[in-house]
């Protein structure tokens, strides 16, 4: 099992990663020419100096960096947004993170439901045409970018059959197409992993024993084989979550969903230093804790895994 010591080390590791990432982003953002206050006309040097002073951007870089790090790690204050000036970065994230999380969770549920179902179906009908069809579809699924899937979904379900609304997020119906577009590629991966895992387990001796005891195929599949076969799927959930979060960047744009994704690109391209760093911090924390949680879950599921990871 995982000891408190290793857990602590891992948590420290997460903090270290955040530190590294924020430092890299800080350096990159300040290397972007143009500065944060360019919008089409040259501004008087005095006005620009006033702006920079107001946001503490005129201090020497190391000083800005130290002050920023102090605010982030000691006070949890991610600073003001330079482009959304009525908001602090914390407020922007507080408003958009739940939206992105909602979408991400729904996409993950779609991925799990479709992926596990299809994987089990393929494994049960191994070698048959169902298997070929499902696996062919899964190969296609991991090959298609989510924006192509989104395009096809919109084409069919918004413009052809008019079943779903196109944009915004005001009702659960608005979540259906984005979740599918976002989750489908991961459903494909999960299906492939689950099928392989099931087949591997089904080939082992104790399963043969269970079968010999007279259990039916379906019972064997679900009662005995599913849990160990879930292992590769569980270890995939970490990367999947990361992928879903970055994928939501595009999907949010297509369906005009006001989540963190829209802030992601905008803040970087518009040199909104504080918001960009804030988004990247939240994202890094999410991904690393998800990886940690996945490792823990893995250890719980598989007694063979020792504390060291």
């Amino acid at each position: 099992m995982i000891t408190p010591r290793t857990l602590l080390l891992r948590l420290l590791g997460v903090a270290g990663i955040v530190l590294v990432v924020v430092t890299v982003c800080f350096a990159l953002m300040h290397a972007v020419p143009g500065g944060p206050f360019d919008d089409g006309r040259d501004i008087d040097p005095a006005i620009k100096a006033n702006l920079l002073a107001r946001y503490d951007l005129d201090a020497p870089l190391p000083q800005q960096y130290v002050r920023y790090m102090g605010n982030v790690f000691l006070r949890g204050d991610l600073g003001p947004s330079l482009k959304l000036r009525d908001y602090s970065v914390n407020q922007v994230l507080a408003e958009s993170l739940p939206v992105s999380m909602t979408l991400g969770v729904c996409a993950l549920l779609v991925a799990l439901a479709i992926g596990l179902g299809a994987g089990a179906l393929a494994a049960a009908r191994r070698g048959g045409w169902v298997d070929t069809l499902v696996m062919g579809g899964a190969t296609l699924g991991i090959s298609l970018p989510n924006f192509v899937i989104a395009g096809l979904l919109v084409l069919l379900f918004v413009f052809h059959w008019r079943l779903f609304p196109l944009t915004g997020l005001t009702s659960p119906a608005h979540l259906v197409l984005p979740s599918i577009a976002l989750g489908l590629p991961f459903a494909a991966s999960i299906a492939r992993l689950f099928r392989t895992g099931l087949l591997e387990v089904l080939g082992e001796d104790w399963i043969r024993t269970a079968r010999a005891k007279g259990l039916t195929g379906r019972a064997v599949l679900w009662r005995h084989a599913a849990r160990p076969a879930m292992l590769p799927v569980v270890s995939f959930l970490g990367p999947a979550l990361a992928g879903i979060l970055s994928g939501s960047l595009v999907v949010e744009q297509i369906f005009a969903i006001p989540g963190m994704g829209s802030h992601f690109v905008d803040s970087a391209l518009n040199a909104d230093y504080y918001l960009a760093s804030g988004v990247v911090i939240v994202y890094t924390v999410l991904v690393s804790t998800a990886n940690l949680a996945v490792d823990l879950g893995y250890a719980l599921l598989d007694p063979r895994v020792e504390g060291s990871t």
Binding site: P98, V99, M101, T102, V105, C106, L108, L109, L169, T170, S171, P172, L175
Partner: peptide
Amino acid sequence: ALGLALLLAAVGLAGRTT
């Protein structure tokens, strides 16, 4: 865990009614 996820989703949607 799944229930928690759904709850999160519900909270995310709350207050976004038309």
